[in-house]
């Protein structure tokens, strides 16, 4: 603190606006990307070091090179199964968004709905998905449907919760204003309530996106003949740890990619929100 007073880090010319816009953004962006990249490099270096020193046998910890080889040698096989999991995830996520938002709206607009469904939704959330997944297999067979259902169930909850608190976060005076304007409920929803809910809702969607990936894979674990979850089980059975690692990495990348897409959507759709305003401060 005291050093900052004697030697300010950044001297501004007099009269400069504290918030200068564009130029710093790019620099700050690439700089902030440096840290995770540097960290990953260190992780890989340690991983490589441990495996090449022969501390752990390959069936416990495959080397980065082995993992890479597993990925490239089986590119077509992995791509095919990644594709399956991606579809299950995306369809499950999409259904969760539509149903989640609809349920949130219904519960915000209708007290009876809220009293009726809130406990049930909470109950459904508390039941471990992996425990009910076998039941879905019994009901829906070995196709993609039970995986999609598990993905929906996992992604649904954070969307509903975020939707409800987002829709409630609307400025009460803005609502009063609309009633003075004699606005229809639909217009109030589309022009005031829903946009006001977006920041929270998008936060919920980000959490839900990563859960949808987990849901799809959990579904595959229980019974499948395709998908990354299936690949992992197969690799495990063959003690092919390199392949297992390859599948794990692809799965993580999928979740991260989905999250990043939503981050971009968030930036584009709510540039006005404080969370973005202060990002480059």
């Amino acid at each position: 603190m005291s050093t900052a007073i004697t030697a300010p880090k950044q001297s501004k010319e007099p009269g400069a606006k504290p918030r200068r816009k564009k130029p710093s953004k790019v620099a700050a962006g690439s700089l902030s990307a440096m840290y995770p990249v540097a960290f990953m490099v260190i992780v890989f270096a340690v991983w490589w070091g441990v495996t090449s020193a022969g501390i752990a046998p390959a069936y416990i910890l495959p080397s980065p090179a082995d993992t890479w080889a597993a990925m490239t040698d089986n590119a077509a096989y992995l791509a095919q199964h990644t594709w399956v999991t991606t579809w299950e995830t995306l369809i499950g996520f999409a259904i969760a968004i539509v149903v989640g938002i609809a349920v949130a709206v219904a519960m915000v607009y209708n007290k009876t709905m809220e009293r009726t469904f809130y406990p049930i939704i909470l109950f459904a959330q508390v039941v471990p998905k992996i425990a009910i997944a076998p039941l879905f297999i019994v009901w829906l067979g070995f196709g993609p449907q039970p995986k999609i259902l598990v993905a929906v169930l996992m992604a649904f909850f954070p969307i509903v919760i975020a939707g409800i608190s987002g829709l409630r976060a609307v400025d009460p005076e803005a609502l009063e204003l609309t009633s003075i304007m004699g606005s229809s409920r639909w217009k109030v929803f589309t022009k005031v309530r829903f946009p006001a809910a977006l920041p929270e809702l998008l936060g919920g969607l980000k959490v839900a996106a990563t859960l949808a990936v987990t849901g799809a894979v959990v579904g595959e674990f229980v019974g499948a003949n395709a998908g990354l979850g299936y690949v992992i089980l197969q690799a495990n059975g063959n003690i092919d740890t390199a392949m297992l690692f390859a599948a794990l990495i692809i799965m993580s990348l999928m979740g991260v990619l989905l999250f990043m897409i939503l981050d971009v959507v968030e930036r584009l759709s709510i540039p006005w929100h404080a969370s973005h305003r202060n990002k480059d401060a």
Partner: peptide, 19 residues
């Protein structure tokens, strides 16, 4: 009996939509 066309209202807070 309800909101009217010929009335304008200003609150203590501006209540502008931030977006």
């Amino acid at each position: 009996e309800g909101p009217r066309q010929d009335v304008g209202f200003v609150f203590q807070r501006p209540a502008l939509l931030p977006w």
